[in-house]
Nucleic acid binder design. Structure first.
Lengths: 330, 330
DNA sequence: CGCCGTCATCGAAGCGCTTCGACGGGCCTT
DNA sequence: AAGGCCCGTCGAAGCGCTTCGATGACGGCG
């Protein structure tokens, strides 16, 4: 059952290399200078024995676990594929920096944060999908656990936050439509439920979209069931007969919007233009496929991990980082 | 920055409760009997101080990390939402058993397994999306790291595997169609790419579907692009003019299949029946919505975690566990 | 030519926990 | 009434690592 190399300790490596255990430690960590010959011998012994330091012992002695936690909002209506990309990106970047990633779910709540902080099982934490009013944020402040948030809580004072630049995303969409020669444009917004939880980001899209465009641009909120979408689009066209461009920031509604436009006699891609804020799949699943601005999950994750590592190393990081949106044409 | 309760150790708890540190440990682990009065006093001290044992120290002394690893195939074409459900289910079940979950990606490969095994950072491991010929399986055997696999490798000897009972899933679909009075039925299979990697599971569906039905049931493999689906369906109907029921085991093709059937004049839900093997969303996105058998990600994850925990506790578990498929009517 | 600074290395002291053996005091047995 | 047992508790040893201060060896400098 147990293979060879089971239970190889630093002492084994040391004796094989003919040095003290502390020397092995210094070779591995590089915290003191070691002669090249000794270092070589040690590295050889490490390789021969397949030595990996015992994570618990290391964490006990060095007060660094080499693990970061990632708390995901697994339970609610968030877009699962995006979460997965996020997790993937975070793990990949973390491993690049020799860290492991502990997965937590948001339903552990503040108590979960207290637990991981006190047990020193992780060195720091990435909190995803932060809401405007989030009890975990308060707990985080209290615990003093190094952390990076994805999203912006109401009071971001003293916290490190990373997010997509939603205002820029709105602007990019409006600009795209304008460049296509659309005079009158509109933004079909998210459903009420989304706004309720995370006001900030929907508003930022809105502001970016409107910019200084005046009455030629409007924002309409919209539920996401087929019937409401159909009605909203109809009303919108009635209200703005010259409407030539539409940005949709409401994933589930995109398909219905396309139907409604077809029913209204609009030829998307020809006399009418649509752009989506949402995941690629949503924009790819329509006919014709639509240009879109996506939430760059991998980039966000990488940035978050990098920021966290810098914090752990005592370097400083900007309080707030906004990722530039990218428009994908199709 | 650092809140109160920072660095509370077992010694602090012990002195506050007026007992020895070892007594605190025994109260917490229940490994020796302690008088109720003492236990109460200790628990009170624990609560007062917000004590959580240092994970590294615990793992060093007890040779149990309280963490299990989960290796996900994050990089390839797997269905992301299902993976996420899986991760979610695993974390939830693990926490229920006081374990944490470390997330790994398949691209760490066998070396990654060696690393986590040797560093004792985890006690065991769940390997997702195991392929028929998987180098990690071999590594796992060599390492003797307690593990549970999702899926079946070619040689499952001595391993603990969990998966959906795909043969039963095929049978359930065929039975459903038969009950609807369909005399002639067919299974539209997966694309070649899927078969190539994981032969086992596609074949099991096929066998379950065919059962002892003889020539009234057939299996047709099918690529997933719109054109090929259209052609395949057309050929199928030409070959079996009395075809009245179809099972589709090919997620991306489902939408196209519905179009093709409509083109062929079949009224799904009335004179023709379709059932899907795949995620709920795929079956819900069609008109009409279709009955389906899904891969029960949460159940699989829970089962895997429970089996792993039993193994870690030295209890025995079945080598092979097949989860009963569930047909969701719509 | 002897003194001192540097460099490479060693040994020992913990990090916070679990666990093993020991030990005192009741209670049951005879 | 005395011996044995079990129960509840304690103290100490150690898990494998990092880190700090100490120690030789070596060369450069006055």
């Amino acid at each position: 059952m147990a293979g060879p190399g089971r239970g190889v300790t630093i002492a084994d490596v040391a004796s094989r290399a003919g040095v003290a255990a502390s020397t092995v430690s210094y070779v591995l960590s590089g915290k003191r200078s070691i002669s090249p010959e000794t270092a070589d011998r040690v590295m050889q012994a490490v390789a021969d024995l397949g030595y990996h330091p015992h994570a618990g012992a290391r964490s006990l002695a060095s007060r660094r676990a080499g693990v970061i936690a990632m708390m995901l909002p697994l339970r609610d209506g968030m877009h699962l594929p995006v979460l997965m990309q996020f997790a993937s990106g975070a793990v990949t970047e973390a491993r690049r920096q020799d860290q492991d990633v502990l997965l937590m779910t948001a339903d552990e709540g503040p108590a979960g944060l207290a637990r991981v902080a006190a047990s020193a099982i992780v060195d720091g934490l990435i909190l995803m999908d932060v809401e405007v009013r989030d009890p975990r944020v308060e707990a985080l402040r209290r615990l003093g656990l190094p952390s990076v948030l994805i999203g912006f809580p109401a009071d971001a004072e003293g916290l490190t936050c990373v997010d997509l630049d939603f205002a820029a995303a709105g602007r990019v969409c409006a600009d795209y439509l304008a460049e296509r020669g659309c005079g009158e444009i509109a933004l079909l917004g998210a459903s009420e439920a989304v706004y309720a939880r995370r006001t900030g980001f929907a508003e930022r899209v809105r502001e970016g979209f409107l910019g200084k465009r005046g009455p030629s641009a409007e924002v309409w909120p919209c539920p996401d069931d087929p019937v409401s979408v159909q009605r909203t689009v109809k009303e919108l066209i009635a209200a703005k007969p010259d409407l030539a461009g539409l940005a949709v920031h409401n994933e589930p509604a995109v398909g219905h919007v396309m139907h409604a436009l077809a029913d209204a006699g609009k030829l998307v891609g020809e006399d009418f233009h649509v752009v989506v804020i949402g995941p690629d799949e949503v924009a790819e699943r329509t006919h014709p496929q639509l240009p879109s601005v996506l939430v760059p999950a991998e980039t966000l994750a990488e940035t978050a991990v990098r920021h966290l590592m810098r914090k752990l190393d005592g370097l400083d990081v900007p309080d707030s980082t906004l990722i530039e949106p990218q428009l994908t044409l199709r």
